[in-house]
Structure formats: structure tokens, C-alpha cells
Amino acid sequence: MLKYLVKRLLQAVPLLILITMLCFTLINLAPYDAMDAKVTDKMTPADIEQMREEMGLNDPIPVQYLRWVKGLLQGDLGQSLINRTNIATDLKEKIPNTIKLVLPAYATAFLLAIALGLIAGRYKNTWVDKLINSTASIGLSVPTFWVALLFIYFFGLKLDLFPVMGMHSLGEDSFEDFLHHFVLPYAVLTIGFLPDLVRYVRSSTVTQFDEEYVTVQRAFGSSSGTILLRHVSKNVLLPMITKLGMALPMLVTGAVITETVFAWPGIGVYFTTAIRNLDYPVVMVVLVLSGSLVILGNLISDILCAVIDPRIRIGR
């Protein structure tokens, strides 16, 4: 197991290098650089040239890249061009806010999806299944921001039940206040995550019920409830673990749109603002971060699978 782990971690290194290279190259291909954010009317071309030299922007691209990566490795993520703030400090403040929103929403959607999917798959082609499945299909084709706007309109504006912006009221810091702000984006996000997961669990359940071992179990007197709970569900949950690992990057970038609509002070707003303002160090760091999380998530789900699925248990 340990050998497998080390091997997988080592395999991740070149991928990570590739991600940083890609991010850096793409950003450098963009027709602007750090100077465009700093230049003011009062600067002479000579001043600008001097600043470029000082910031190292005249160095060859590989040199700049290595300098940047060296910074990343030492934990220096650089500075925002606009706010002059330390990006690492910013992230430390923003990421927890995003997690506070995404984690409960994804967990809710995940558990709900397992229940609904198993029920729909078990009662395939009955009205329960048709209700669940068609609702999921509709949900899948409805964009999140539209749901968000509807919620804002009805629950925020019409019924005036919940605030529609931010995480806290000004000057308030209580948990109740947080919850009050939390409800709408949480609901929207859960609805956003749910349909895909439900359909996944349902189709997986349907496939499992067609398996021969289900017929065998029936031939030995198992009730369909027993088969569902003791046999099918375990086979359905296994691929769900993979989904769980893959969802890891969502903790950072899973709610960009919802956060933006609700002005939730998480990564989403931070990231979109940075893009709008050509704040390229921020954009690069967020891209590298979410890319690394994809790799890490894959690794985690592989390991979880190996732990749970007896067929791929390693080192025996």
C-alpha cells in the first residue's frame, strides 16, 4: 500500500509541473503584463522601462517562470497587482468562506442523491422513478445562476425571508446571522449539485439490478429490500467514492457563479474580480490551486477505492 502511495505521489509531480507551466505560459501569452496595471500618466517611458527591469519583466520567460515557481514552493504566492495584498493571506481568508458554503451543500446533495437515486433505480419506470428522474433532468438543464436569481426574487425580494447578499450583515458576527445569509446560496448550490449525482446513482442502481447476482439472491429468497440494502447499495456506493474524490476541487472553485450572484466573500468573487481586473498573479495561483486539487482528488479517490474494493486491493 505504501509503495503504491509513493508511486502515485511521484506520478503526480510531473503533472503538477505541467499545470504550473501551462498556467504561466497562457497568462504570458495574454496581451498585457504586470506593468499595464501599474503605469500611470505621470510615468515617462524611461520610468516604465526602469520599472520593468526592476520587476524582472525583461528577463527571458523561462527565468521568470522559475522565479515564480521558486516563490510558490517557498509559500510566496506573490502579490495582487490591484490591491497590493499578499495572495496567500487573501486565500487564507477566502477559502474557508467558500468551504463553509460548498461543503454542507455538497454533503447534502451527495446524501440526498444516494437516497433518491437508489429509490428511483429500485422502482424503475414507476411514477416515483419518473418523478425523480424527470425532475433531475430538468434540474440538469437549468443554469445555477437562474435558480439563484429566482430564489433572490421570491425568497429575498417578494417574501423578504432571507438576505440576498454577503455572509454577514455589517457589524454583525453571530452564527444566527451567518445562517440567515447562508440559507439561499446553500439551497441554490445543493440544487445545482443534486441532479447530476441523482442520475448517476439511479443509472448505477439500474445497472446493478440487472446483474446476475441479483437474480441469484432472489432465487435464494432475498426480498428486494434486502437485495437493495445489502448487495446493490454497496456496489452503487463504490463508484460514488470516486465522485467524492473528484469533488475535492469544488471546495475551491465549486461555487464561483453562486458566490458571485450572492456576493459571498469566497474564492468565487475573488477570482472573478481578479479576472476582470487582469490581476494575473491571482488568476495564476487560483488556477494552479484548483488544478492541483484535481490531481489530489483523483489520488484520494483511487486510494479510497483501493481500500474499499476487494478486487483492487493492493500489495497482497
Partner: peptide, 23 residues
């Protein structure tokens, strides 16, 4: 259901798929 197994049981053609792989 009470008859199946207790009174009459059935075994099948393909033993490779007859058992739940995770149990």
C-alpha cells in the same frame, strides 16, 4: 419469496457473475 430458497432453490449457468463481487 418464502418458497424461494427454502423450498426450491436455483443455481445458474454463469458462476462468474452469480456472486456479489463486494461481499
Amino acid at each position: 419469496q418464502k418458497y424461494r430458497g427454502r423450498e426450491m432453490a436455483m443455481i445458474f449457468q454463469d458462476p462468474m457473475t452469480a456472486l456479489n463481487p463486494l461481499r
